[in-house]
């Protein structure tokens, strides 16, 4: 459990330092179960920081979104650090970005939070629809969420609202941090991401029927790309015109190509935060693709992403004895 006072105190202390530009954290939203990202430039801004099981957003994405304009003559580069509040998966995303040389470790201040799992917004909105007031959710020690709505207290078992990816999370504690709030969470036995196994056993035609139904719905809004902390290419393959890898038209063929490309580009990089699936407006189970690749990569190459800054990227290295049973 994260002590809020502690969080604010530490944030204030860090933002008062001269070499820190701003800190990204969570603050209350405006209605329902919303949580917003907050940017603290001064110690006063840090007052509104919160942490609750509703904080499902992956803030690591903000570290790479910062736009660096060309410098004017005589102007010096702002070399101050950026602070981020990170959960287990967010921290892994940061490690992965550092590993790919997208960020430098010395440019970051990481406030680590041992995560006990976050609530899936889609699930809680289904359970308590159309809320206009701001609602707070607290987790108690008996694996229950206490939700106060209009003076009425609801107790909901944790398992009903917990995000699917959190159920199978193996790294709730951030592997990389400067300050850790509270004590590390004990790693309990995790469920396997079982949806993959079910589909894996079906014949090819059934698999295609399943994915066809999903990909036909895709509107190619690219929200999955924008929310993903690891989709930070300056120019995405989907946006290039020469060569045009994917045509602009929204149809089954192009949608499938896009979804294959997105999943494949995250092979050996995805850190299973589940943001892509959370932001998808048409509820495509994108995490199934990511988890499938993650499991294959683990099985074939014994590789886990986002744990070691010094490790080489999966597709940038090889072992002479990689599996080659599929080769004729």
């Amino acid at each position: 459990m994260v002590d809020l006072k502690n969080l604010i105190e530490i944030t204030k202390k860090i933002i008062s330092r001269e070499d820190v530009k701003y800190i990204v954290g969570y603050k209350k939203g405006t209605y329902g179960f919303q949580i917003m990202p907050a940017f603290a430039y001064t110690p006063e801004d840090a007052e509104e920081f919160i942490y609750s099981p509703l904080c499902s957003k992956n803030l690591a994405v903000y570290t790479i979104l910062e736009e660096k304009l060309p410098l004017k003559r005589g102007e010096e580069e702002d070399k101050r650090k950026i602070g981020v509040v990170v959960k287990g998966c967010d921290s892994r995303a940061v490690v992965q970005i550092i590993q790919e040389k997208g960020l430098k470790r010395e440019d970051l201040v990481l406030i680590g939070i041992p995560c006990r799992g976050v609530i899936e917004p889609k699930k809680i909105e289904k359970m308590f629809p159309n809320q206009t007031d701001l609602i707070e959710v607290i987790e108690n020690d008996n694996s229950e969420y206490i939700i106060n709505i209009g003076g009425k207290t609801h107790k909901v078992p944790k398992n009903e609202l917990l995000s699917d990816v959190c159920k199978s999370c193996e790294f709730p504690n951030p592997p990389l941090y400067d300050v850790l709030l509270g004590e590390e969470v004990e790693i309990t036995e995790t469920e396997e991401f079982s949806k993959i196994n079910e589909l894996d056993e079906k014949p090819t035609e059934d698999k295609w029927e399943y994915w066809k139904e999903h990909f036909e719905r895709c509107i190619r809004c690219y929200a999955c790309r924008e929310a993903c902390p690891l989709c930070y290419c300056k120019e995405c393959m989907a946006d290039t015109l020469n060569p045009q890898w994917i045509r602009r038209s929204v149809n089954l063929s192009e949608n499938t190509a896009w979804n294959i490309m997105r999943a494949y580009h995250l092979a050996g990089r995805c850190i299973s935060c589940g943001e892509c699936e959370r932001v998808c407006p048409v509820n495509i189970p994108l995490m199934e693709l990511n988890k499938k690749i993650e499991r294959d990569v683990k099985k074939m190459f014994d590789y886990t992403s986002g744990l070691d800054e010094e490790e080489k990227p999966l597709f940038g290295m090889f072992k002479p004895d990689d599996p080659e049973d599929f080769i004729l």
């Binding site: 993959i196 589909l199 894996d200 090819t204 035609e205 059934d206 698999k207 295609w208 029927e209 399943y210 994915w211 066809k212 499938t256 294959i260 999943a263 494949y264 092979a267 050996g268 693709l289 499938k292 690749i293 294959d296 990569v297 074939m300 190459f301 999966l314 597709f315 940038g316 090889f318 002479p320 990689d322 599996p323 080659e324 599929f326 080769i327 004729l328």
Partner: peptide
């Protein structure tokens, strides 16, 4: 080392395509 890198890439791509429902026989490497 080009063929070693290709081996990894195609291995992952082949399995992904198979999972999506495209017959694995369609993508072959030799």
């Amino acid at each position: 080392r080009g063929n070693y890198l290709a081996r990894r890439r195609i291995a992952v791509m082949k399995r992904l395509l198979e999972y999506i429902g495209i017959e694995p026989e369609r993508v072959r490497m030799t």
